[in-house]
Amino acid sequence: MMPALTLRNVVVALLLLMLFLVPVYAAVIGNNFVLSLFTRIVILAMAATSLNLIMGYGGMVSFGHAAYLGIGGYVVGILAYEGILSGFLQWPLALLVSALIAFVIGLLSLRTRGVYFIMITLAFAQMIYYVGVSLNRYGADDGLTIYRRSQFGDLINLSNKTVFYYLCLVLLLASIYLVWRLVNSRFGMAIQGARSNDRRMHAIGFPTFRYRLTCFVIAGTICGLAGVLLANHTDFISPAVMHWTRSGDLIVMVVLGGMGSLFGPLIGTVAFLALEEWLSGITEYWQIIFGPLLLAIVLFARGGIDGLLAGIRRD
């Protein structure tokens, strides 16, 4: 099926093209900072994409999603510190731990709704944050330097910045593809039904809790993978990654780009980090400009930037 030539599709296509060309651009101008910035954007876009799965499609507004960034990162960091460098061990273990923690958090918090759900996910994330702070062996709140990135033998060398960037980009696109498959499957219909009207779902015969919990675990696992990438990118992990304001940033990225839209989180993350970069270059108090801008998007474009783009059709 050929995607229609709408403004939104053109923008998404151009954005993807740009992301593919970033290393080329960075090489031409000989500026590593651009590559580093965009690696960060791509990784956080992956985290935002996973948050969008539960928040945008599932109606589960988690205010503790950054916890999984830390969990994925700490598994890599701690294993590396203890001398286990193999990515074949580090990565699956990081995903497993993320999934298990998401399962426990989901099991307890998905019994609540609305503001209570927001608060309880925040509380869990804070608990995990303080666990990170108390890890004296692993740097406590100063964090832990990761001296060697995950080793994959001859398969792939993560220390090569261009290779690492493309790996992140491929994994981001794979997550977006996964979310696309999920939300259109029977599972996805059940998830969206539960967001739209949970009472009706029960009346027509759906035990929605198990589907919502599964969705919560999938999102936590994808975000855990983003955490693995982030730790490898910064060669460092600290509790700051899990601070509640980081969870807030992820929510802002999703809302800014467009909740319940496939490419919304990517658009939102690019917009968020680009604005942050640009505005903080103008003034130290960049949030004074960023805040009202965000407010305007939320008030006047309820579907975020993606909704704004989709509203203006070219055909």
């Binding site: 498959r181 999920l182 259109n184 499957s185 029977r186 599972f187 996805g188 219909m189 059940a190 039904g193 779902m201 027509i204 015969g205 759906f206 589907y211 599964t214």
Partner: peptide, 24 residues
């Protein structure tokens, strides 16, 4: 989609993650 969800509820479990439900 509304009515198809009601059908889906009675057509086995919904742990089917890959096939597009709208083409079933």
């Amino acid at each position: 989609d509304n009515v198809a969800l009601a059908v889906q509820a009675h057509s086995g479990h919904s742990f089917r993650f890959w096939t597009p439900a709208r083409s079933e």
